[in-house]
C-alpha cells in the first residue's frame, strides 16, 4: 500500500484529501504545516508527498526544497496543491524540486487521477 504524506493548513482540505485517498486504499499521514510535514517526512518514509503552497510556519515551496534535500526523497514524487495557476508560482515549485502540481479546486476524482500518474 503506497504511503502518502499530505500537508495542508486547511482542516477541510486535509479531511477531503485523506478521505479520498484512504478510500482508494492509500495510507495517509496528515501534516498541518511545512514544519510538521518535514518532521514527519524525516520520521518515516513516504511514496508520495502532497503539499499545499500557502502554509504558515514553512510554506510549501520551502517544504519541497527541504524534503527534496533529504537522502531518501531524492526521487520521490512531490505534488503541490495550488490555487495559484500563475506560472511563476508553479515554476518556483518546480525549481524547489516538485514533480508537478494539482490546481485547486479539484474534486476527489481529479486528485486520484493525478496521483495515479506518479505512483507505480
Amino acid at each position: 500500500m503506497s504511503k502518502i504524506l499530505a500537508a495542508d493548513d486547511s482542516a477541510s482540505m486535509r479531511q477531503m484529501v485523506t478521505f479520498t485517498l484512504k478510500g482508494a486504499g492509500f495510507d495517509v499521514v496528515e501534516a498541518v504545516d511545512g514544519v510538521d510535514a518535514l518532521q514527519k517526512a524525516k520520521a518515516e518514509s513516504f511514496d508520495l508527498v502532497l503539499s499545499d503552497v500557502n502554509m504558515p510556519n514553512m510554506n510549501g515551496i520551502e517544504l519541497v526544497k527541504n524534503i527534496r534535500a533529504l537522502p531518501n526523497y531524492k526521487f520521490t514524487p512531490i505534488l503541490m496543491l495550488t490555487t495559484e495557476s500563475g506560472t511563476d508560482r508553479k515554476m518556483a515549485g518546480k525549481e524547489a524540486g516538485a514533480t508537478g502540481w494539482i490546481v485547486k479546486p479539484f474534486n476527489p476524482e481529479q486528485l486520484l487521477n493525478t496521483i495515479k500518474r506518479v505512483l507505480d
Partner: peptide, 14 residues
C-alpha cells in the same frame, strides 16, 4: 492572505 486564500480554495473545492 493565507486565510483568504484558504477560504477561496476550500470554497472552490466544496
Amino acid at each position: 492572505f493565507r486565510a483568504a486564500h484558504s477560504i477561496k480554495g476550500g470554497a472552490g473545492t466544496f
